[in-house]
Structure formats: C-alpha cells, structure tokens
Nucleic acid binder design. Structure first.
Lengths: 226, 226
DNA sequence: ACCTGAACACCGTTCAAGT
DNA sequence: ACCTGAACACCGTTCAAGT
C-alpha cells in the first residue's frame, strides 16, 4: 500500500496501524497484516516495536496525541467552562474518527503516559477556574467518559508507581511533579485529606455516586422544565 | 475443574466461561481452554454454542441477566429517583464482580436482546416518573455509562431491524412492541418529532452535548458550593 | 444426540541467519 | 543497523468419523 522505498520506522508503522484499524477495525490489526501493509515481513516490526502490546501502547499514545492536537486547534477564550466543553467536543471528534479508540484505551493494562499529561492540563484548567483539588478530582471522574470515551480506574496503586519501596515511590512522585504538576498537587491534596487511607486515595465508589447524583439532579431539574 | 459426569449444556458452558473470565480475564477465554475447564474437547463446544462469537454473545446476556437479578433484589419504593439510583448502583456491583463485562458489552457487534429489555424497564421507570419520551431518551443516554459501563450507539439503523424491506421493518417493530413496549413507544415518539430524519432518530451529537452540559451545570453549581 | 481427531488457516514470537 | 525464513506454540473452525 505504501511505497517500500524509505526505511521502516516506528512512526511509519504506527501511522499504518492507525490506518489499518480505521479501515478494518482492531481485530484486523495483526502483526502480519500490518507488516504486509508496510511491504515488509512480520518479523521486521519487532525491530521497531516491542511486540504486539508495544504496538497497541503506541497506538493508544497516537490517539491521545491527536486529541491534544485537536484540542489545541480549538481552545476558546472565556474561562474554564467553554474551554472544558471544547476539550470534550474535540475529544469526541477524534473518537468518531477512530471508533476503535475507546475500546483500546479502556483495555490497555497500564495507562499510557500521554493520558496523564492530558488530564494534567484538564486539572490545570479547573484549578485556574476556581475549583478545589477535591472538586477538580471529581470533575475529572465525572467527565472521564466524555473526555476519553472509556471507563477505567486511573491510578490504581499498581499502575501509579509500581514500586513498593518508599524511596522509589518518592522518586516517582518527584518525577511526576515535573511532568504533571497539577495532577501531582491534586493527588497530594487528596491523599492528605483521605479519612480512610485503606480505601486508597481514589475512592471510586464515592466518585461514582457523585457523578450519578450530578446526573440525577440535572435530569430532575430538566423534568421540571427549568 | 468441574465433574465431567453430567452432560455438557449451554448453561454449564456459559457458567464456566464466566468463571474463567473472572479468574483469568477475557483474553484467557478461548474455546480450547474453556473446553479443558469443562473436561471436554474443544470441538464439543460447537454442538452447544454457535462458535466463539456465540459464546461471547451468551456471556454478554449472562451479565445482563445477573444485573437484572441484582436490580430486582434491591428495588426501593419512593419514585423514579431512588429506584433509578438503586438500579445504577446494582449494575455497578455486577460490573465490579466481572471487570471484563464493560469491555465485552462495548465491543459486541450487535446489541444483546437482554440489553433492550433492561433499557425498556428503565424507560418505563422514567415515564412513570413523569418524564417525557424525549427526556427519557436523553436520560438513558446520559446514564448509559453508569448503567452498563460502556459507551455505544444503540439502535444504529443496521442493528435495530436488519431488514431493508418496509414490511419486514414494520413486522420487526410489531415484535418489538410486544417485548419492549416503552422503548418502542419512545422510538415512535422520537421518530415522529425528528426534524431532520437523515440524521437518524438518535442524534448522538445532541445527546452527547446534553449530557456534557448536564455535567458542566452540576460542576458549576458544586463549585459555587450550593 | 452428543462428542472426538485430524487437519487447515491464522496468530504472536524466538532465534539464528542473512545483508 | 536493519531485515528475513524457518520453526514453535497457540488460536478458531471444518469435516468426516466415532459412539
């Protein structure tokens, strides 16, 4: 399909993977078929990508990158609300271009780093708009599906750091602070306020009920045609 | 794992499939491994189930059936709101028991019939609570993720009837009216009101923005600590 | 009626080998 | 440095064959 003149690169492989998934769905994206589309043998892919899982991780990152671009292309002035709204609508446009993306993002075993960056910007937006760390946290959960089209617990203890050592954990946190400052501050604030640390800082049951009541409140109001 | 005395049945196979997915995830659920867990050869499964896709369809229906059961076990009095709330929380409990369920339901090529029944009850609940067909429709979209844990367009023209013939379509509608009366009435009302029929009766962009604004309204209110 | 064995096309992946 | 061929374990599925 593509000219086989220029040498294979990770970027060319990922772009072809996006095209293949767009055209024939995630199930059709196999190492062998992707290689064929690139005019190359299946085993050549392993030189540029760490196996199938690595390919899927790269694909997930590509989608987030495209979303980031789409968001930047339409970032209105006027405070947190129109900006957040535009952000969600931009994300949706990308998801409609790549219908396989929600399923892919939702089933990746570890959260692609690009997702953290995306949420960090979102949290920054909310904080600048006067949200507390607590409410920003809840907002991210409530809008999670609207923003990424999938449901998943972010920041499970396993996926956040991966290290049991306290020093390593602090090193991880320091590294996080550099790349995703708003997210780090939010995590720190929420951990500090946690009443029952055994539940983890991200008590998803509470978040679920918060979002649920937000929706029920809104529907109730709409029912009484306000 | 199970005693291989009693003969294999569709029900035993599906129950074993749920157990396997719970224990080792959806990826581990292969025809060969499921057969082994049942003390049988892989090909025996084909006598009771129409292939892998049929197995996954059955698995999806099992989850909905379990949700239906969980909902029935905790159906409080007091009007649409507490009942709908309990419904969503019950669904969540089932999803937490079967973490693979959202991904499965979200990627099934056609909507399992049990899902229609589930939504029909929900719509009945809303109508009895004084919701218009239009608002009930929007409520189902807004709460879709809370109820089933996945995002998907229901009722695409292809999945709804499958027949292009007008007579067949009307026959399908009549059959639907018998099993899912509230849903049928809602579809009929929405189709009648549709301003631009080319968009389909289910204009998901409108639904998306409705839900988004519901959430943004709620967050804005929470921000001003009401 | 219910189950099986052998066979086929396809998959991800390893490894030694090519240039 | 970059790519390949042969091989391995695994997958869904068919079909003729067993009981």
């Amino acid at each position: 399909v593509t000219t086989s003149r220029e040498p294979l690169t990770r970027e060319r492989a990922l772009a072809a993977a996006v095209d293949l998934a767009d055209a024939e769905g995630l199930k059709a994206l196999t190492m062998r078929r992707l290689a064929a589309a690139l005019g190359v043998e299946a085993m050549s892919l392993y030189y540029h990508l760490p196996g199938k899982e690595g390919l899927l991780d790269g694909l997930a990152s590509s989608v987030i990158a495209e979303m980031e671009q789409e968001v930047a292309a339409d970032d209105p002035a006027g405070g947190w609300r129109p900006r957040l709204r535009a952000r969600c609508l931009a994300a949706r446009r990308v998801m409609l271009r790549h219908p396989w993306a929600p399923a892919l993002l939702g089933t990746r075993p570890s959260v692609p780093p690009a997702v953290y960056a995306y949420f960090d910007e979102t949290v920054g937006l909310l904080l600048a708009g006067g949200f507390s760390h607590r409410l920003a946290h809840r907002a991210v959960h409530a809008l999670g599906t609207m923003m990424l089209g999938f449901v998943q617990e972010l920041f499970t203890p396993a996926s956040a750091g991966g290290s049991t050592d306290v020093d390593d954990a602090e090193a991880d946190l320091a590294a996080m602070a550099a790349t995703v400052p708003h997210l780090t501050a939010m995590v720190a604030a929420e951990m500090h306020d946690a009443t029952d640390p055994t539940l983890g800082w991200c008590d998803s049951q509470t978040e679920f009920e918060f979002t649920l009541d937000l929706l029920l409140d809104g529907l109730d109001r709409a029912r009484s045609h306000v």
